[in-house]
Design a binder for these strands. Structure first.
Lengths: 194, 194, 194, 194
DNA sequence: GATGAATGAGTTTTCATTCAT
DNA sequence: TATGAATGAAAACTCATTCAT
């Protein structure tokens, strides 16, 4: 799985030959088939394991005694760090997710389960904001969680060309909470400086 | 290109054989090579043409005499409609984009140009909000434009299971402007009711 | 199909790689797949075509004005010649037949149809013997036809080590008609001398 | 060897993986190689052992004080029963025989030896018929033995679709002795009723 | 210009065989 | 002696691309 993840850095599923995975992993090609039912399965399992690891990180990092804003920022940072450190895995999640969703059948279901875990991990944090009155109550926490993840994804994929200052975790958390209208500047935020 | 787009509805680039594209397009297989240098090129051109069409829509739909909120909502609607009507093309843009970015070389540059057009079309709208004071000024309009696009993308791909009411264009525009904290309820917004 | 037949001379279905067939046939490997749906199909079609050719030979060679014994001998000769000339094809028929019968499904049915044609071609000849009183009437002509074919098959595969004189077509026809008890010697037979 | 025989019921040599043989035999895969030099060897030995067992049966069942016709019928019954009870083994003999004969080398020789035993066991019975005058003397007993075996093989493989009455052991023995011309009906035969 | 038959490099997958334990 | 994890050669099959018509 590490070899698969590594090769995903520069190529997509279909462009990666199992020959290469075997070579990088330094095992025989047949060995792969002892542990994964087929190529699809190898990449699927790898992606899923990444999902799960991120969930574990999120659950672990829920500190107590923080304001909602602080918690949210911490969440953004956790996810950002993961995205940065495991970029290829992140790509795999995106592209295997696309395949899994399209494929239908048991694969689709298994995939959605893992994605749901992720969504709920973030939603739990936002739900605390709703409870504390820091977040509006009209929309499900799950929906807001997806938007937050969407912003983080956008930052990771689409804003690479922008200077760090305008795409900091703090700015994402701030935009997520206050929107682009923003609070009255300049005492914009009680968030810790990023 | 229409044939390619149509086939993309259910399958990915690598799963689509040119034989099929030719059959669906009702031309000889060799003919494709008279107009595209490559299989890659066929899909790339198709994706790019979709990008451009969306840009055209955005530029056309910029009405005058609207408040910022109204303009933004209109923008969301325009994009949403396109995403809905041309779902396969949208998928193609995502996946060809991933390939183009990774491939390096002239392809990458060409792709980024088209994406920049899109970003700027949205950014222009947001810039008007900054000018009018409806949008904070600390962040580049381009960055905010990407976040908006990210929200729309999230809605299209990740929130299909949610009821229409919690993922309306109006709610996206509202969240984008005011954030999850929301305006002082209940006279929440000058936005038209969705 | 000629290449397949030729390679079958020394090897069995599973031992023959399509690479070789392509090389011998002097076509690209992919070309084979333009005309046969898969490896199985190539060998099946080849075997079937052999069956059909043998049937054609049998039907063509039915001369008139011969005694039953003469007709039978001629039949034996026709089949023997075919077996000798097209030994690999004959082997293919045997082994593809085994596979087709085991495989079940449409293949099995298609195969049985062709085999039935063969059986009936021989049975028709024997039926004339029954009509003329040269052959007993208690058993279906089809059953007797299979036994005759069985003897010819035995001769071709199991009696290669025996001298030609004891495995002549005439002796097979004679044994088939009169059995091992034989007619009252020495004016044993009205059959032409082989 | 029992596992191999059992798996041969539904599949051919090449379709049976040693993994399966090992699993069915409930031994480790490596263990097979302690007792057989080869996959080939395993199946060859199994087939050969079947041959030998049939020979043993034939030799054991040679009762005294029977007419030739009775002895022959008994032989047919013995062989038929074996074919019926051990159908997969019978198939294995056929297909391993084909491989062994084509392979050349020591294998071919070893195979022919075992086949010769079989042939001779049947030939011995026929030789008694020659001695007693029940069988013509012009042809070697071995040749006639092969034809008899050929008829039995035909009955087992090609006449499955026929009603039992027209493919009884008695009818085979009768056809073998008297041929299709048959004795003067209806007091056709001194054979015991089947 | 249009075509589609031919091609063969490239890919996934299987499985007999080995060998360290 | 028994094992079964590891292996990599081998094989079927696909498909982007070419090119003679």
């Amino acid at each position: 799985m590490q070899a698969a993840e590594q090769l995903f850095r520069t190529r997509q599923f279909h462009e990666i030959a199992l020959d290469e995975v075997a070579r990088v992993a330094d095992v025989g090609k047949g060995t792969i088939y002892l542990y994964f039912s087929d190529k699809e399965d190898l990449f699927f399992q790898t992606a899923v394991s990444g999902y799960d690891e991120m969930c574990r990180l999120l659950l672990k990092n829920v500190a107590n005694g923080l304001t909602f804003g602080e918690t949210l920022l911490q969440t953004c940072t956790t996810i950002s760090d993961f995205f940065r450190r495991r970029r290829p895995l992140f790509r795999m999640i995106l592209s295997e997710g696309a395949r899994a969703l399209e494929s239908g059948g048991g694969l689709r279901k298994r995939w959605l389960e893992h994605r749901k875990s992720m969504r709920e991990a973030v939603a739990a944090i936002i739900a605390r904001g709703i409870a504390s009155g820091d977040v509006r109550s009209g929309l499900p926490a799950e929906v807001l969680a997806e938007y937050l993840l969407g912003m983080l994804r956008t930052r990771a994929w689409e804003l690479e060309d922008q200077p760090e200052t305008v795409r900091s975790d703090a700015s994402i958390a701030d935009l997520f909470i206050h929107g682009v209208a923003g609070p009255a500047a300049p005492e914009r935020s009680a968030l810790p400086k990023s």
